[in-house]
Design a protein around this nucleic acid. Structure first.
Lengths: 245, 245
DNA sequence: CGGCGATGTTTTGCATTCATTTTTGTCTTT
DNA sequence: AAAGACAAAAATGAATGCAAAACATCGCCG
């Protein structure tokens, strides 16, 4: 009776692990997360239509729960629904990226401000530790490690804000941005790298002093600079590669 | 063949106007908006279960599109889905309100900052006009008119930020907050009223000077004070009414 | 008399079905 | 040969059907 028998052995059920141990994971929630990852990880090209039938087989479910998940993803802004023409992966225009980065900057600015109000010395110490680790990666020119630490720090600041609504909103925006590939050649932006390190120093300094308003500014500008770097690189990719001004 | 004939004349189709004129309104979108309004406007009590069958009749649709809309509203945070136990209207705890107000403050702070970067003199003049109108309402102690202008100003600043993603996020958060009833006896908070007016003066001043960072601070603190007022009042309502300290 | 378990009803979640719409492929016409 | 028209095929959007879970009612036993 299952729809699994449709195309014989088409089914790999790539995700959808039904771990019922701790959290009640209500197929819908699982599927939603799986499908979101599937799209965020770039398994579908920009603007491509979302193949319902295929995904149904892929995840071993019928169209109803899949379509429910699609509506949610559309509300999140990850895909768009064209009436009678199905769902498309939403391609991010340069303007969309500008918007997303700025909103992300606003949310991080808020996170910094709130974090100053309630962060403990221990949490600051923990962030400092990651920061030093990140610095070592920076000295070693280890992009991957640096990037990891960088993300951890930002995540920790958002967490330190103690605001679940903020975290959820932040994650949603971050997920949408994550779709774009900052093809790892950030090496070209060596200057930016050093600048980013200095900004992180300033972030830590403001955090230590619990200077909320100040940290808020720094966080926003930090993201603004990140945005500029991303835009610059994006332009360099789509345009000619040689003209580095 | 319509399912309208279910319970004879039960159908009033309270919303769901199918205006096909300009925008393609894809039943799903219509239903989503209608259902959101239905809940935001308080037609269902806090924590009440969302009656699928009833709403299907109410809107003249089957369970499938309704359930799709419910998933989206759950993702938005307006309702919560309990596995195998349907949807409940999400009751906002004091902590939820704190979070929502702070996020709203962060978003308005961002809106102010961005608005300073790109707002035109004409738009500022327009805001000033509303501001003066609001001031007249304030002098006349006309709560309703004041409140209307107030909201208009905040909306205009968000719009002036020129960031659709920000607007969407802002509207989502604002919608969730709107569920709580600031039962119109804000009169009790006369002091706060004057304070709010002064804050709005400062907002306009910063906006005129395009002092983004400064405006950002003011906006956040403005919302923070609003939050305090709301919390204070909420406490007064749930607790004893007489102790106005 | 109160707590507990069985049984029938309702509700939920998902699969399936059905009516439209869109898309594709072919054929005709100029 | 290109453009348009038509028809077949597929996909979409919504309704309905069905198994399982929750809920309620009632009888049973302590």
């Amino acid at each position: 009776m299952t729809n699994i028998a449709l195309d014989a052995e088409t089914i790999e059920s790539p995700s959808l692990r039904r771990e019922d141990g701790a959290g009640q994971t209500s197929l819908h929630g699982e599927l939603l997360a799986a499908l979101r990852d599937y799209i965020v990880e770039g398994n579908l090209a920009d603007g491509a239509r979302v193949p319902e039938r295929l995904l149904c087989n892929r995840f071993g479910i019928s169209r109803t729960p899949l379509r429910e998940a699609l509506k949610v993803l559309a509300a999140e802004g990850l895909i768009e629904l064209l009436p009678n023409r199905g769902a498309r992966v939403r391609a991010l225009s340069a303007d969309d990226l500008r918007e997303l980065f700025d909103v992300m900057g606003g949310l991080e600015a808020l996170a910094g401000r709130l974090a100053c109000e309630r962060i403990s010395d221990e949490d600051i110490a923990e962030i400092e530790q990651i920061h030093h680790e990140m610095y070592r990666f920076y000295l070693r020119r280890d992009m991957h490690g640096y990037f990891q630490c960088n993300q951890d720090i930002h995540r920790m600041i958002v967490a330190a804000a103690g605001n679940a609504t903020l975290s959820a909103t932040y994650n949603s925006i971050a997920g949408r941005i994550r779709r774009v590939r900052y093809s790892a050649n950030l090496d070209k932006e060596r200057d930016r790298w050093g600048e980013a390190m200095r900004e992180h120093e300033a972030i830590l300094d403001a955090l230590r002093r619990r200077a909320g308003s100040e940290l808020s500014d720094i966080m926003f500008l930090h993201l603004r600079n990140k945005r500029k770097a991303a835009q610059h690189q994006s332009a360099a990719q789509t345009g000619d590669e040689s003209s580095s001004t």
